[in-house]
Simulated scan of single mutants.
Amino acid sequence: MNNYRPFAGITPAVKIIIIINVLVFLAINMIGQRANVDLVNILGMHLPQSQYFQIYQYITHMFTQKELTHLFFNMFAVFMFGRILESVWGTKRFIIYYFVTGLGAAALHSLVSLYGLHNMQEQFYAFQSTPDAGVFAEFVRSHVSNPRLLSELMQFVDAWNAAPASAQFAGQAEYYMQGIIQAYANAPTIGASGAVFGILLAFGMLFPNTELYLMFIPIPIKAKYFVLLYGAAELFFGLQNSVGDNVAHFAHLGGMLFGFFLILYWRKHSKKFY
């Protein structure tokens, strides 16, 4: 037992990243819950329009995971692929890459979210000029994923359709729409996934022909094809923009995109980019 070293074989930065993520996870699910402090809301990244927005959240959200499965798969990827990259690049360059991809992911996700918020506000203004139960119903279907809330709001629509000339229903609908928009703006984004996707992209570029054995694919797949397929899937689901899909697909794409350009920059400006 004296020779037991739980972090043997883990590179320094990867070790610190995993430790920080685990500590934050424990703080959220143990200390935060007992003290009735919403650490996810404090550490998670918010849009500038949110009342909870703080600039430091662009960093802290990268180390914040609430669900055990989310934490496990992100940290497993950091361990499996990050330690290889750190061994090749060195700790300093790996840390730079990790934060550039993580912040790049946050930037792209924020831009897409701001665009979505702008569209919601435009829909609200259009509704204000011409209140209509059908327009309100379409807004609700497009932006509400909670089954119970959706059911309650559609019951409201049915009541409005029974009295379409009622100004009271129009005013209540405005109130509901404002609440939905505010909830969208206040929703926190958390997770290391943006940087993790940057790590996957880097591994695919440095070791493109390495064969990976994945649980959900019965045959080995080369790293370059795995990265391409994963990136294409994220783009597809991101463009789908399905109601209830809480995965930040464009954050994942942002991590890959910024990682790609950073690696190209290093290759161009260094004899050995690692």
Results as ranks from 00 to 15, higher is better:
I180M: 05
I180C: 06
I181C: 07
I181R: 05
I181D: 11
Q182V: 08
Q182I: 07
Q182F: 05
Q182T: 13
Q182E: 14
Q182W: 06
A183F: 04
A183S: 14
A183L: 09
A183V: 05
A185Q: 02
A185L: 03
A185Y: 00
A187V: 02
A187G: 04
A187P: 02
P188V: 01
P188R: 01
T189L: 10
T189W: 06
T189F: 06
T189M: 11
T189P: 06
T189C: 08
I190C: 12
I190D: 11
I190M: 12
I190Y: 06
G191P: 11
G191S: 09
G191A: 09
A192Q: 12
A192L: 13
S193T: 08
S193I: 05
G194W: 02
G194L: 05
A195G: 11
A195Y: 05
V196H: 04
F197S: 10
F197H: 15
F197M: 15
G198D: 02
G198F: 01
I199R: 01
I199V: 13
I199L: 07
I199Y: 03
L200D: 01
L200Q: 01
L201Q: 04
L201M: 14
L201E: 02
L201N: 02
A202K: 01
A202N: 02
F203Y: 15
F203W: 05
F203V: 06
M205I: 12
M205Q: 12
M205P: 06
M205E: 15
L206P: 07
F207H: 15
F207V: 04
F207S: 09
P208C: 06
P208F: 03
P208Y: 03
P208W: 02
N209E: 14
N209G: 04
N209V: 01
T210E: 14
T210C: 07
E211A: 12
E211Y: 08
E211I: 04
L212E: 06
L212Y: 04
Y213Q: 15
L214E: 08
M215K: 11
M215I: 13
F216D: 15
F216A: 13
P218W: 05
P218T: 07
I219H: 10
I219D: 14
P220E: 07
P220C: 07
P220I: 07
I221T: 09
A223L: 00
A223M: 01
K224V: 11
K224L: 08
K224I: 09
Y225T: 03
Y225N: 10
F226I: 06
F226K: 01
F226H: 09
F226W: 10
V227Y: 00
V227T: 03
V227S: 02
L228D: 08
L228Y: 07
L229K: 00
L229P: 02
L229C: 11
L229R: 00
L229N: 03
Y230V: 14
Y230D: 15
Y230R: 09
Y230K: 10
G231Y: 04
G231Q: 10
G231H: 03
G231V: 06
A232Q: 10
A233K: 08
A233C: 09
A233D: 13
L235A: 13
L235V: 13
F236N: 12
F236G: 12
F237H: 10
F237D: 14
F237Y: 14
F237T: 13
G238D: 14
G238F: 09
G238Q: 12
L239R: 05
Q240S: 11
Q240C: 13
Q240L: 15
Q240E: 14
Q240I: 12
S242L: 13
S242Q: 12
V243G: 03
